[in-house]
């Protein structure tokens, strides 16, 4: 017998992580139409930064270090590479995916392909609605909403955040109004990287940390952003929870090997029925 509460609780936990995976990808895609295929590698770097820092400092400090490290890495990637090629969609595609592969190979050299598990920030758990929930799952869930709230405040209440929003609507208009597009890009990449680092720590803990772990989150980010609609944070959140519940049900009723299959099916249906996604603007090249 499957307890419906189990699916609800587990689905919500999975969904809160998927939001974190997708939000950074959605931001970069939404603001400038840049598809960053190194996004999965950002998530992986978050997990590895936590692994390395966790050996030196406490779990909470390692978590903060991982977030800052990936945020800065993302800014570095933008300033050092993407800035020069972003006008060329095809080359940006290729270059970012090649960056992901380089990171994968470097990590393989250093840590081998064997998966490792990360030490959770807090161990232990409680029984909740008949399901055992681990504390760090609850922390992930709560922090995910806190981070989303902060992002919302940032975009709506601060000048830099409003500039990001304006640039995502019309770059030309934002420039005319005096927005410094370079600042906007740097801020966007930092926020996207920080969210990816955050997601990486928890994915590395819940699943496994290995140099090939970037591919699945990248695929998920595509699926979620496309279903939710490009440029819509609300759409990404709803799509992430939708996929979270769908996957939990898939794992419960069909089997863990089928994870991802039905999400893809949903993606195809949405693309055919509503190509701009649930809440998206029409994608303009």
């Amino acid at each position: 017998m499957v307890n419906p509460a189990t699916i609800l609780v587990t689905g919500a936990m999975v969904g809160s992580l998927y939001v974190l995976i997708a939000i950074g990808f959605s931001l970069i895609y939404g603001v400038r139409g840049v598809i960053n295929l190194a996004h999965g590698a950002f998530i992986m770097l978050g997990a590895f930064a936590y692994l390395v820092a966790g050996g030196q400092v406490s779990g909470v400090a390692a978590f903060v270090i991982a977030i800052l490290f990936v945020g800065l890495f993302a800014v570095g990637l933008y300033l050092g590479l993407v800035r020069y090629i972003e006008h060329n969609v095809v080359i940006t595609f290729l270059a970012t995916v090649v960056v992901a592969l380089i990171i994968q190979q470097l990590l393989t050299l250093e840590y081998s392909l064997a998966p490792r598990s990360l030490e959770p920030i807090v161990s232990g758990g409680i029984a909740f609605a008949g399901t055992r929930v681990r504390y760090y799952q609850l922390i992930a869930f709560a922090l995910s909403w806190v981070a989303l709230g902060l992002l919302f405040l940032f975009v709506r209440r601060t000048t830099l955040g409003r500039n990001i929003l304006a640039t995502s609507m019309t770059e030309k208009g934002a420039k005319l109004a005096g927005t410094n597009v370079l600042y906007v890009n740097v801020a966007t990449w930092f926020v996207a990287g920080a969210f990816a680092g955050f997601a990486g720590v928890f994915i590395g803990t819940l699943q496994s940390t290995s140099p090939t772990m970037w591919i699945n989150p990248l695929g998920l980010a595509f699926i979620i952003v496309t279903i939710g609609g490009v440029g819509s944070i609300k759409g990404s959140i709803i799509a992430a929870y939708l996929i979270g519940f769908l996957e939990t049900m898939t794992v419960t009723f069909v089997g863990p090997a089928w994870r991802g299959m039905f999400a893809l099916l949903l993606l195809v249906v949405i693309i055919l029925a509503k190509p701009e996604g649930l809440f998206g603007r029409e994608f303009i090249e």
Partner: peptide
């Protein structure tokens, strides 16, 4: 399905199909 998709969506769908 690609017949209805613009470039980036097409790439993403093909990427995911390999994973599947």
């Amino acid at each position: 399905p690609s017949l209805r998709l613009s470039g980036p969506y097409f790439s993403l769908l093909t990427f995911v199909s390999v994973l599947v």
